[in-house]
Design a protein around this nucleic acid. Sequence first.
RNA 1: GUCCCCGUCGUCCAGAGGCCCAGGACGUGGCCCUUUCAAGGCUAAAACACGGGUUCGAAUCCCGUCGGGGACGCCA
Length: 451
Amino acid sequence: MTPRLRFAPSPTGYLHVGGARTALFNWLYARRHGGTFVLRIEDTDTQRSSDDMVSGILDGLRWLGIDWDEGPEVGGPHAPYFQSQRLDRYRAAVSDLVSRGCAYEDDGAIRFRVPQGTTTFHDEVHGPISFDNAHLESFVILRSDGHPTYHLSVVVDDIDMGITHVVRGDDHISNTPKHVLLFEAFGATPPRFAHVPLIMGADKKRLSKRHGATSVLEYERQGYLPDALFNFLALLGWGTGTDDELLSREELVQRFTLDGISGGNAVFNTDKLDWFNHQYLLKLSDDALVAHLRPFLIEAGLWRDAFHSTDHAWLVQVLALLRPRAQRLTEFATQFRPFCVAPTEYDTEGVRKHLSASDSAAHITALAACVTASAWNVETLERDLRALAEARGIKAAVLIHAARLAVTGRMVSPGLFDMLVLIGRNAVVTRLQRLARQLPLPVAPSAAAHE
RNA sequence: GUCCCCGUCGUCCAGAGGCCCAGGACGUGGCCCUUUCAAGGCUAAAACACGGGUUCGAAUCCCGUCGGGGACGCCA
């Protein structure tokens, strides 16, 4: 029997990293064993569910590269995959239970009759877990408005859809005995359960809307690569048993096992996510990088269609300089700006440090003349600048720092000479001359630094 | 309060009785490189919650304590 797994989000909120990671584990297991991954929308709470949330969840999964074999938009043999469209099925199941005395009416709602005894199930990550049924109240399975509750609908659907493995959050452990009892009441064999630990915020508090439980699509906006987030999430609460960490989807699929899931909660560590992202950024092909970067450059007003044609080679060279110093795509856009446009303002700290000497203007003017005459390549530019510094009796660093400020307006950039070559002689000379004319620049009162 | 789960460096993951005076990664400190910031190289600090057992031997098994998390809805 090939395994069938499902991810069953409720569209009462967006897809955050916790849900995404649960979906990912289900997906990994299904792919590992040639099984089927089902997406089912649990929208029985009509008040709080919304279509926007549904499409947001689908978009989030697609962005992460988690595809589903059955579910919304793709259909499947057990359609519909929205619980709100399966109400008749639940009502029929409930009356079946009532007719057999397994459930009873209570003020218009239907409650399940919990038998005495102990309910035990084997959890793939925790081992055997048992509950005294005395702690399970006769829970409601059909509300007085005719809508099923979660407990009823999950079980009915998991039976109908032939789900063999239920991989879900730890917070469902205490619901599981209720579900096991329902499976038994319906004469069905319960699926295998695997409860995965929850993801916590940096403060070790459970992720909530107020606590970093942002939509995974927000990570896209913040400049993370889907493969990086995927890799990072896969290793949160699960380990391969080896020291390997940078693993492709294929490798992750190949190595995934339920018993590799750890039992304790895991803290979401943004620093490590950034590191993963950096690693994936470095591995990206030039074309893939450009494709990922495009929306960010458009947003920054720096995109040119020529990047696909005449300026492509130039773009690739610039990106090569930026890659090692960017963790996220958003930083690329920021660092990319000086390669396209002249600075409109100069870092005040930088001005104070590198442009406030009485002879700064003279140095810059001399430098402008120097680069105007220099051959336009990294080696010559550096040699000529150093020669100029020596002739003027100053350290090369003085000219280098001043030049960086003049050309980028900032104190931080890629190596000066590599950068100058790509920015181009005309733009460089223009920027140097313009700054020389503006010097001395007003320096903010140093009191500002003490605030 | 009751029930359930969990407890190895700050964080994530290794470790399933001797291979561990505990390994890798992120982060942090130092050094090197250096025109800035990164990247890179080298290096350092950093953990088996505590107390009892079991055993020749325990991070690994058992019990208790403490701590963390979760669930106790006509939410999912």
